[in-house]
Computed example of a mutant assay.
Amino acid sequence: MHRPTPARRALLTLAVAAGLAGACGVAAAQSAPATPGWPAKTVRIIVGFPPGSSPDLTARTFAEPLSQALGQPVIVENKVGAGGNIGADAVAKATDGHTIGLFINGNLTIAKLINPQVPYDPARDFAPLSLIGVSPLVLTAPVGQKDVPADGDARAFLDAARAAGDRWSYGTPGVGTVGHLGTELLKARTGINPVHVPYPGYPQVATAMGGGQLQMALLPPALALSQERAGKLKRVGVTSAGRSTLAPEVPSLAEAGVQDFQLEIWNAFAAPASMPAPVRARLSAAISEIARSPAVREKMFQQGWQAVGSSAEGLANRMRADTAAMGRVIREQKITAQ
């Protein structure tokens, strides 16, 4: 077996609700550690992306069953901007003992590496709770895009992108997000050169593509499929090593000849590091059990996620591995916040 290169190891590491209350909420509450007197009030889930975005939908899927498990209301609060970093900073600084966050990869891994001005440190300021879901991304393009064969496959699309050079643009939810770093890595692997344009979230990226402001983007599978069904976008290829169960009819970019490219997004719950350990343990147990319940697994699959529900230690390990892997990609591609 060939020993993988550092870049290859980085890529392999990446390949990395009403009605749900009943049984899963009771079971989670029974299995969670005792925390007398907590929660004493409403629990907040802060999301750094807009309503309707993938992280927002995931947070709202968990809010009701988590409320049942904890015996207090659980609300979702959107604090949007800076690729999710505004919301992340709000979680890091929360001291009320009743605030947690729903995060994407970048906020819990490489935010500080790509931008030293980020006001929080993922490794220092957060306590991992549970890895919730994982997914590849889908390379997506507008329907009827100029210079792209209407029935062309990924090879034809990438040929057109190479010919277009920097006349094309791609959108992401912000600098340092997996969509950004992944597209920069795709540029290096394929010789394409679209210009990066950041947006508040994936829904805004999809809207901009449908309006002709962007020529390509890496989108979550569920959003890409809904836009395709609406006749606005088409799916070109998935970023997994092979075809994904989330989009089995879409070929992988590897099938189109893209080498050493494998990409995965994930979302997770984390708490401020200042939250007492017994409270974190109770939240981790409740959230991970909810994530593994059949009803929530199905709901997340419909949203484009393969549910996980890891332990706090499992999420901590993933954070460390992805931070190291993405740090190598950042250095290789010389990516900065600017």
Rank of each mutant, 00 (worst) to 15 (best):
P6C: 10
P6I: 13
A7M: 12
R9N: 04
A10E: 13
T13S: 12
A15R: 12
G19R: 14
A21C: 07
A21E: 15
A23C: 14
A27D: 13
P33H: 09
P33W: 08
T35H: 02
G37I: 01
W38I: 02
V43Q: 05
G52D: 04
L57G: 02
T61L: 14
F62V: 00
P65E: 03
L66F: 00
S67W: 00
S67H: 03
L70G: 00
G71C: 08
P73Q: 01
V74S: 01
V76W: 01
N78C: 08
V80M: 03
V80C: 01
A82P: 00
G83M: 08
I86M: 07
G87Y: 00
A90N: 01
A92P: 02
A92W: 00
K93L: 11
D96W: 07
G97C: 09
I100W: 07
F103M: 11
F103E: 15
I104A: 12
I104N: 13
N107M: 15
T109F: 07
A111N: 09
K112L: 15
V118H: 04
P119H: 01
A123R: 12
A127Q: 14
L131F: 06
I132G: 06
V134R: 14
P136T: 11
P136A: 06
L137Y: 10
A141K: 06
P142H: 10
G144M: 08
G144F: 04
D147W: 03
D147L: 08
D153N: 13
A156W: 02
F157I: 01
L158P: 00
A161W: 02
R162L: 05
A164V: 03
G165C: 09
Y170A: 04
G174H: 02
T177L: 09
G179E: 15
T183K: 05
E184G: 13
L185W: 10
L185V: 14
N193L: 06
N193G: 12
N193Q: 15
Y199C: 09
Y199P: 00
P200V: 15
Q204M: 07
V205P: 12
T207R: 12
M216K: 02
P220M: 08
P221S: 13
P221F: 14
L225K: 14
A230M: 07
A230S: 09
L233R: 02
L233H: 01
V236C: 03
S240N: 13
S240G: 11
L246P: 02
E249H: 08
S252Y: 01
S252G: 15
D260H: 11
F261C: 05
Q262E: 14
W266E: 10
N267S: 14
A270S: 11
M275C: 04
P278R: 00
V279C: 04
R282I: 10
A285L: 07
A285K: 13
A285C: 13
S288L: 09
E289N: 11
A295R: 08
M300E: 13
Q302K: 15
Q302N: 15
Q302E: 15
Q302P: 04
A307P: 06
S310Y: 04
A312T: 08
E313W: 03
L315N: 05
A316N: 06
A316W: 06
R318S: 12
R318G: 02
A321H: 09
M326N: 10
G327K: 01
G327Y: 01
R328W: 12
I330K: 09
R331W: 02
I335P: 00
T336A: 07
Q338N: 13
